[in-house]
Amino acid sequence: MINNIKKLVKEFSLGELRGGMKITAKELVNKKITVQYPEEKTPISPRFRGLHALRRYPNGEERCIACKLCEAVCPANAITIESEARDDGTRRTTQYDIDLFKCIFCGFCEEACPVDAIVETQIFDYAFVDSREGSIIDKAHLLEVGDKNEKMINQTKLEDSKYR
C-alpha cells in the first residue's frame, strides 16, 4: 500500500526525468571523452594485434627464413608459404600470403616466429576496397608494412618486452 503511494508520487512529480536530466547537466560541464576519429585516436595497448608485417634486419635483409612454423601454428590456416634455396644458398620464402578474412588475429604466428619476422602491428584501419581477393596480402605488401612501420613496431615490442 505504502509502496504504491510512493510510486504514484514519483511518477506524478517526473522523478525519473529529473534524474536523467541531472546526468545530462553534469556531463554538459564535464571534460569530454569523445575523440574525433580519424583526426584523433584513442591510445592502444602495445599488445594490440592488428595488421601483420614482415620485418627486416637493420642491414635490409628480410628476417623470415621460411621455417613455416607460423603456417603450422595458424589455427585458421590463413598463412601460405612456399620456399626455396635462394641463389646465395639461404632458405627464403618465394611466397608469403596471409588471408585477412581467415585470420583471427590470435597472434600465434608472432609467438611461433623464431626470428621475430612476422609481427602484428597496431594498424587496424585497413580496408579491401578493390575486391575480395584484396584480403590476401602478399610478401611484398607485408614487407612494405614492416618497412613503413619499423619504428612503431620497435617501440611497441620494446614496451612489451619487460612483461615477457
Partner: peptide, 9 residues
C-alpha cells in the same frame, strides 16, 4: 628437395 617443404606438409 632442399628447403622446399617441411615434413609435416
Amino acid at each position: 628437395f632442399r628447403y622446399e617443404l617441411r615434413s609435416w606438409q
